[in-house]
Design a protein around this nucleic acid. Structure first.
Lengths: 149, 149
DNA sequence: ATTGCAAATGATAATCTTTCTCATTATCAC
DNA sequence: GTGATAATGAGAAAGATTATCATTTGCAAT
């Protein structure tokens, strides 16, 4: 058993900060998410959560992921493929963006402050405050410059 | 009955250009799409298509929309809400982007050449050729400058 | 620490969107 | 016009997500 003061994951702390009841399952899912630096779908999150606590239900993963999204802890992404994928939400500063390899489907993250401020400016000029940016560029790997064969 | 030389919709022509068999249903769906300047989902497209030709099936709408997407005639969009939405694909020049009102869900289109070239450049620097850009910024209508109440 | 209550969970049914199946029909080249 | 081939319609099936409801749990007040 853990002692009451054992350190929680960053996301579990966020969860508490938002006034959400911190159940064992939420603690587990928060830990799994804090531990992930990719973009898992619910099925994959469930798989990882079960490794930590085998008596967790996939229904709870769906519920928790939705709850976390509503509270700005998670962001839902759609990279095609029919299932939603999730990642920890960015802070207030700069969002990050995704480049998707057209052939392999691989997701590559990138940041760009020039892009941040350009978008910010465009949206402001249209009379809005920017809340979130969802940007994925699909690209195809360039042929090498010295393609001779 | 239409004469064989009756003018087809721009999308129907595109359809023929791509070597796709131009059936009555595809002609209808192409017409409906050419006629739409919003972002209908399949259900909505089906509704509009039935007004033109009542004996069309929703399965065919699903099939056609997928076919058109695979052939670069349509682009699939995800604005949340669980269902895919479609719009006519942009030409080779500049993509267009979407601003989504956080409160109403309303979709506002915009273009920006500076954004076009910035993205192009970023992707190139990462070693890729840009294929498509999927960008939606979620924004909240700014409070008026003279908010006093 | 114990109690009580509101909220969360598990298991599964239900829903919703999209794809598949297969018998029938239509397209297009000849 | 004919025929081979592909497209369609109607409904079943699949896949992802949400709802249901009896049971369990977290947490605040005692």
């Amino acid at each position: 058993m853990k002692e009451p003061n054992s350190p929680d994951s960053p996301l579990a702390d966020l969860c508490r900060q938002r006034g959400l009841k911190l159940t064992g399952q939420r603690r587990t899912i928060a830990f799994v998410l804090s531990d992930s630096d990719d973009h898992p779908d619910v099925e994959e999150l469930y798989r990882r959560a079960v490794e930590v606590d085998p008596r967790i239900s996939i229904a709870t993963v769906y519920r928790t992921v939705r709850l976390f999204e509503e509270n700005g802890i998670l962001q839902r992404r759609d990279f095609g493929g029919g299932r939603a994928r999730y990642e920890v939400a960015d802070g207030d500063h700069g969002d990050h963006y995704h480049l998707i390899d057209a052939d392999t489907g691989k997701v590559i993250e990138f940041e760009n402050t020039e892009l941040d401020s350009l978008l910010e400016g465009i949206v402001r000029q249209m009379g809005y405050d920017l809340v979130t940016t969802r940007l994925s560029v699909v690209g195809r790997r360039k042929a090498k410059t010295r393609t001779r064969d």
